[in-house]
Design a protein around this nucleic acid. Sequence first.
DNA 1: CGACCGATCGTCT
DNA 2: GACGATCGGTCGA
Length: 208
Amino acid sequence: MSAITPEKWQILPQNFYQRVDTNLIARQLLGKLLVTKLNGIICAVRIVETEAYHGITDRASHAWGGRHTNRTSVMYQAGGLAYVYLCYGIHALFNVVTNTINVPHAILVRAGEPVAGIGTMARRTGKNERHISLTSGPGNLSKALGIQTAHTGKSLQGNTVWLADDGFTLSSRRIAATPRIGVDYAGEDALLPYRFIIRDHPYLSGRS
DNA sequence: CGACCGATCGTCT
DNA sequence: GACGATCGGTCGA
């Protein structure tokens, strides 16, 4: 793995997010870094699991049927923003908004492998640095990185939360697509293969 | 193992 | 008033 050298990480540009193929973007996020800088402390994970949500036509999406509420309005912005919402009253789940304005697609980041700031992440969560659940699962991941609902709407070109490329590469053989987790309410849309994982990675949440 | 359950609160009906 | 894009614990087979 590469050294912890944040100054060499290339921030993913706006046009990475504003493409129309959200599944492709979700797949390309595997292996990238999700980074936070809070109170001057940098934490980062390498993304190993994502889920694409296809907006208006996707029963699993908060924007299904064109639902446009205060909470979901950020998804209707052009890609490149954070969409963070509270789940079960407890967990702040982190998504990246993709696609163009008025196309409310998003990608949930579900798990990562710790890369930087591991001590801080352990302190935030009260877990051992080496425990898998430190950054596995979307609620756990946000807690470790310090991501909160107040971060919703933030630009991913800013200096609080962003995604970056450190040169890590991944062959397509190591990537798999599966149904999404926890969306049984979505009927047959729950069966769509919109969850992307690095095969057999130890930090995956749920089943492989 | 798997099934179930409680926590906890913003959002939407 | 009902319900989560979850998690960690318990209980029983």
